[in-house]
Amino acid sequence: MNVNRLTAIDDKPGRPRGLKLASIAIAIVGAIAAARSASANTSNGINLPRGVTVLSRDIYSLHMLVFWICVGIAVVVFGTMIVAMVKFRHSQGAIPDTTMVHSTKVEIVWTIIPVVILIVMAVPAALSILKIEDTRNSDLSIRVTGYQWKWQYQYMDAAAGINYFSTLSASSNFARQLHSGIDPRTVPHYLLSVDHPLVIPSGVKVRLLLTSADVIHAWWVPDFGMKRDAIPGFINEMWIKVLPGKEGVYRGQCAALCGRDHGFMPIVVDVKTPADFKKWVEDQKAALKQAQAAPAAPAAAASAPPRTAATLPLTAKL
């Protein structure tokens, strides 16, 4: 399965000869990157993913802006502390200046400067919230319901009628049992693979309507930049617009403690081009029709309506 990745290490060749240490370092980084090629998202393992949606890119830039501001402040503040510790040592015979106890001027300055810095951070953040909260004019809505411990996806609009559950894949489920004896490293996408992924089109605004049938869950795919709680009795909204060209499989997990198997209800999203998505919808609908027409199936299917779609021939296991 092709996963879009932004972190490929592509500068391995062409290093100046003789720089043994550098090449070893690069080899190590390369090895780590290779190990990470099994990774589920576009994060490099130590930072937020830039992600693949309009919002995730905004959030990433905000994150990096604030991060560098914090680094700047840290250099100044920690630098001052370190200088003080080096310069004003009792063991070096430093004489304390006991008259230095108060300065209104200085205190006003170091109250105002943080306020200004905070405003610099708050403005882009506020603009970004306005964008995030604007769920109007979506092209496709999908209702996402959390259960202990699986997700249900019910499509609306043009894809209305498609409705299925998404649970941890069997291979991960075997391996994750206590004393299973199976090495998780041998399981493809351990704990981040499901039987039936959510399928969405790229390039259009997809609105998720989140709720829960039992306890509070949270739907989080880091590459989409967002998480939102699924709360019983409430419907929360969030929207995703995957940038065209970023089709692929993206993975996430339930992010709100929801009981014993909270760690085992992953989210997998298969982002298709609008054309492929259209075809997928047609296939699903055709299969749905066939299943309803088939005389043997209805008895079982009708008694448990939301589960009917689980028997559909969905896309291959991801």
């Binding site: 190990a35 990470r36 099994a38 990774s39 589920a40 998202n41 994060s43 490099n44 393992g45 130590i46 930072n47 937020l48 993913p49 994750r176 998780p184 490293r185 996408h189 351990y190 704990l191 981040l192 989080w220 880091p222 993975r251 996430g252 997990q253 339930c254 992010a255 403690l257 909270h262 760690g263 085992f264």
Partner: peptide, 17 residues
């Protein structure tokens, strides 16, 4: 790093990355 890379809290087991 773990949090930024996408690891939720309060989970007993995690993906291999």
């Amino acid at each position: 790093f773990l949090g930024l890379a996408g690891m939720p809290r309060r989970i007993p087991d995690y993906a291999v990355q």
